[in-house]
């Protein structure tokens, strides 16, 4: 299965990844190879097979509704790129 340049541009945008123009051909080639590999799945008929999302047959455990966490803002914001007045700052969001 061949991946096109436009596919790379579309998914790079979906995933918010800047890809240098010069690197696009290599991504096209490598991803096409990967999808050739992936296409081997098509050789097997899976019509009657249940999809398996998870390795274990388990169900979700439920947590008691108790507020257990204390304020750690200062601790957590030490590693933040940019904060002010306790807020994380990002370039202006336009709505």
């Amino acid at each position: 299965m061949s991946i096109e340049r436009s596919d790379i541009e579309k998914i790079a945008h979906l995933a918010r990844l800047e890809v240098a123009e010069a690197d696009v051909p290599e991504y096209v080639r490598n991803l096409s190879n990967v999808f050739d590999l992936v296409a081997q799945m098509d050789s097997v008929d899976t019509d009657s097979v249940e999809p398996m999302a998870h390795p274990m047959e388990m169900v979700q455990r439920l947590r008691d509704d108790v507020a257990t966490e204390s304020d750690q803002r200062e601790h957590f914001q030490q590693i933040a790129p940019q904060t002010e007045n306790g807020l994380y700052l990002v370039p202006k969001v336009i709505e």
Binding site: E84, N85, G86, L87, L89, V90, P91, K92
Partner: peptide, 8 residues
């Protein structure tokens, strides 16, 4: 915030 948006 100097032309930026604050996130809470």
């Amino acid at each position: 915030f100097h032309g930026m948006t604050g996130i809470d």
